[in-house]
Amino acid sequence: MGRGLIWAAGVLVAAFLLAPILAILPLSFSAGSFLFYPLPGLSLRWYRDFFGSDFWLPALWNSLVIGGAAAGLATVLGVPAAFALWRLRGALRAVVLGVVLAPMVVPVIVVAVALLLAFGPVGLVATHAGMIVAHAALGVPFVVVTVLASLEGFDAVQLRAAAACGAGPVRAFLRVCLPQIAPGVAAGAVFAFATSLDEVVVALFIAGPAQRTLPRQMFAGLNDTISLTTAAAAAMLVVVSVVLLLVVGWLRRRAPG
């Protein structure tokens, strides 16, 4: 009896998690212009609206550019740091790790307001560069944590073997270590990209009209009357999220250990 009850409860909770998302996806294909069921018919008019619009398409583009650049920056900075952290021990490691992981726990509203204040005098408010720097800082802990985890499965003796064969430390890292942890590095980059793609609070405070990302544009749409174009934008973000989830799952299976 107990097991049946747990099954019922668990399945209900899983349905609670999925239902809201599944409920809005079909609405974006509605031929009508209202957000309820039954649908008057199916059409792609809201997607045409999205791709023909003067602000949705640039928002999608902004999201991809800012997310890609932020993920790239976070990866370039995060991978060497993770490699170093993997070898560090003791108090130094704790301090560095504390600083690196801080963006994960500091409430993002504090980051947003602090950056608004700090970026103003140096001219980074309402610029792509400002958004990229901010999103890279928020994404970097995910890169470091993911790469650190994949380094757990890497045997350090190989580096010594490479050194014995005459490879310098940089060459040993690039030719021996990096190929083996590549899935972890890629997963970290995807995490950083997803963090940027999801982020809206920093964008609310420091992005100008030319830096509006997709979630930021959706936020504006939600404060107004919700249009079905917003539902189409949401549906597209869901598809991107599913793709990212599958990519990370695929990378995880390729990871050593």
Binding site: I21, A23, I24, L197, V200, P215, M218
Partner: peptide
């Protein structure tokens, strides 16, 4: 994995 704004919009 789905954006917080999307989930809020769904609600």
């Amino acid at each position: 994995w789905i954006s917080l704004v999307v989930r809020t919009a769904a609600w």
